[in-house]
Amino acid sequence: MSELMNRPARVIDGASRVLGGLLVTAAVAFLLLPAALVLVLSFGTGNRVQFPPQGWGLDRYTEIFSSGNWGAPTLLSFEIAFYTAVGALAVGLPLVFALKRSLLPGRQFLEGLAFAPIVIPISAYAVGMYAVFSQLDLIGTKHGIVIAHIAHALPMVVIVLSTSLEQIKPELELAAMTMGASRSRAWTGITFRLLAPAVLSAFLFGFISSFDEAVFITFLGGAGLITLPKYIFDSVQYAVDPAITAMATLLMLGVTFLMLLGTALRKDKK
């Protein structure tokens, strides 16, 4: 009896499992294939990007480091990403405490505001920023780009910090205070200490979001400011420089490493 009832269920289960497996495999392949392809192509030789490559070697990598074209954009990207991460934390940290630990009136509105950059289409947002920045003479300036990138990075930073702060119970601070710790000692020794991995993680995510950003820089960078993503876009506009495969690979590996680090830091507390 039970066998009869179980059998059809098991057949459906098996079929759906195969189908599900295929779907997952297809999705993963679709997501990873371009990345894998770039990785393979970066070790090719010759003047054109083609598959399979004419030969194998580290030509593309040596070219990046010897040509001198990539150095300045890379440095600028690092610089802007660093200030963006610092700035996003400077805005995000107090914001998160106001949202989660205070009774500030209108804090829901503030939270909505912080997440606005996610909701608004990025090119529309960039057009709006262009209008504002041109009034303020911020077009083509580093601090202008940093400001735009901070707005862009803020949602991620706020999410990382607030999910972590929500897990740190306010009672911990109160417990420390009843045990004789001053408010500042309880805050630094307990709350901030527990939040520290999330702060570092938020820093990395802020850094990545700026380092990888190509839309705002195109709208707001003017002629003079060329970050790494901008340089890659520019270089494929007229002719494809094969070296970008090597650059893309490095970028990919670097960002993946930072992402993994940031994620590991978030989980570290548990």
């Binding site: 109160l174 205070m177 045990m179």
Partner: peptide, 15 residues
């Protein structure tokens, strides 16, 4: 302040 009251406290969620 709480820190000056010479009290001890046990919380429901242990803290």
């Amino acid at each position: 302040k709480p820190s000056e009251r010479k009290l001890g406290m046990v919380f429901q969620n242990y803290a």
